[in-house]
Design a protein around this nucleic acid. Structure first.
Lengths: 212, 212
DNA sequence: ACAGAAACTGCACTCAGTGAAATAGTGCAT
DNA sequence: ATGCACTATTTCACTGAGTGCAGTTTCTGT
C-alpha cells in the first residue's frame, strides 16, 4: 500500500498497471495530472495571483465543478497533493508502529512519504520553476495536511505511555513536519529529489544544530 | 518595542497609556477587541462552520469592510493575531542577533512572542473553550505567520556563515515554530500561560526526545 | 445488451476578500 | 471655537473560491 501518487509513480512492487486499473481509474488520473499540470503552467505564466480555478479547469478540459471533485482547494492542485493521501499516511503510521514500535515509525513514514513524490521529470522541473518564482507556495506544501497531522498525533499518542503522551506525540509530529518542510524547500532549491533531501536535513537535525 | 498586543497587554516598560495614545488609537483597539471577542463568541455558539465575517462585524458594531481593514482573514480575527506583529517579530530577531549573536536569538524572540499573549482572563478562558471545541483552529494559530517565517529565515541566514546557511536557518525556524505550535496547544489544553508552556515544551525538545 | 455505480456537468447559491469613492470622526493649527 | 488636514469608516459593486443538488454521461460487471 501507500504505493501510488497522483501521477502514477510507484514505490512498491505491486505495480497496478493500466490494464489492471480499469479505464475509469485511468481517466481519473489523467484528469488529475492534466489539472495539476495546467495549474503549474498558469502559475508559471501569470504568477500566483493570476491563476483562477476556472482557467485551470478550462485548460485541463474539465468543468470547474469537476475540479473541486478532485481537489479540495486551488492550492492543493498546484502543489499536487491529494487529501486522500492523508488517510493513507496515518494508516501507514499505525501499521508501522505495530510492526516496529513507536520510536522510529514516524521517521520511516515521513521518509516514505517524501520519497513517494512525483517522478515525472517534466513536471518536476516545472514545479521547481514555479516554487522558485512563488515562495509563498512553500508553506502550502505541507500546510494542507493539517488533518493528517492531528490524526498522526492521535495515532502516535496512543502508542506512547505516560501522562504527557499526547504532548510528546504532538511535539514529535511537529518536529517531523518541520524537517519535512525544510527538506521540501531544500529539494526545490537544489534540485535534489525529496528522499535524499530529507536524509540531508535529518542529518542536520540529528547533529543537534545549535541554531535552535 | 514589540511591546503591545492587540488587547493592550504590555511587555515592556514604555507603557503607552490611554491618554498618551489618543482617542483615535484607543478606539481602534477597542474595535479590535470587540471583533476578536465577537469572533470567539460566535465560534463558541455556532461552531467554526457557523461563523461569518458579516456576523462578526455586526456583533462588533462595524461594517464588514472595516473588519477587513483590521484583520487580513477571518481566521486571524478568531486567533487574535495581527499581521503587523509579524514585522515586529522579524525586526526584533534582527536586533537580538546584533546584540547576542545568532545562536540563542531565535529562542529568545519566540519565547518573548509567546509570553506576549493576551492577558485578559475572560478572553483567555473563552479562547481556551473555543480551541478545545474546534481543534482545527490550532493549525491556524501560527499558520498565519507564513510571511514572518520566511522573513525570519532571511534574517537568520545572513547572520550564519557557511554555504548551507539558508538551509540551516530554515531548519532552525521550522523547528522553532514547531515548538511554538506545540506550546500553544499545550497551553490551551492545560490552561497554562503560553510562556511557561513554551519553557515546558522546550525542555522536552532539549532532552532530545527520541520519538522523533 | 443491460442495470447499477461512479464520474462529469450546469446551475444557483453563499461567503471571503478587494478596490474605489463618499462620508464621518480626530487631531492640530490658529 | 473654527477651519483644515488626516485617517478611519462606510457603502457599493465586484471577483473568485467553494458547495449542494439534480440531471446526464461514461464506465463496469454480468
Amino acid at each position: 500500500m501507500l504505493c501510488r501518487t497522483y501521477d502514477g509513480a510507484v514505490t512498491d512492487e505491486n505495480h497496478p498497471t493500466e490494464e489492471t486499473l480499469g479505464l475509469r481509474e485511468l481517466k481519473k488520473r489523467q484528469s488529475r495530472i492534466a489539472m495539476h499540470r495546467a495549474a503549474l503552467e498558469i502559475v508559471n505564466e501569470h504568477g500566483l495571483a493570476g491563476v483562477t480555478v476556472e482557467a485551470i479547469a478550462h485548460r485541463a478540459g474539465v468543468s470547474t465543478r469537476t475540479f473541486f471533485n478532485h481537489w479540495a482547494t486551488k492550492e492543493s492542485a498546484i502543489i499536487g497533493v491529494l487529501g486522500a493521501n492523508g488517510d493513507e499516511i496515518a494508516g501507514r503510521l499505525r501499521q508501522k508502529i505495530q510492526e516496529t514500535g513507536p520510536l522510529g515509525a514516524l521517521r520511516t513514514v515521513l521518509r516514505e512519504f517524501a520519497a513517494s513524490a512525483p517522478v515525472d521529470p517534466e513536471l518536476r522541473e516545472l514545479k521547481k520553476q514555479v516554487m522558485a518564482k512563488e515562495p509563498r507556495l512553500h508553506s502550502y506544501s505541507t500546510g494542507n495536511l493539517r488533518s493528517v497531522q492531528t490524526e498522526m498525533v492521535v495515532v502516535l499518542a496512543e502508542a506512547l505511555e505516560g501522562e504527557d503522551a499526547h504532548e510528546r506525540a504532538m511535539l514529535a509530529v511537529q518536529l517531523g513536519f518541520a524537517v519535512t518542510r525544510t527538506a521540501f524547500a531544500a529539494s526545490m532549491a537544489r534540485g535534489l529529489d525529496l528522499g535524499t533531501a530529507f536524509d540531508d536535513v535529518l542529518a542536520h537535525y540529528d547533529e543537534g544544530d545549535p541554531v535552535f
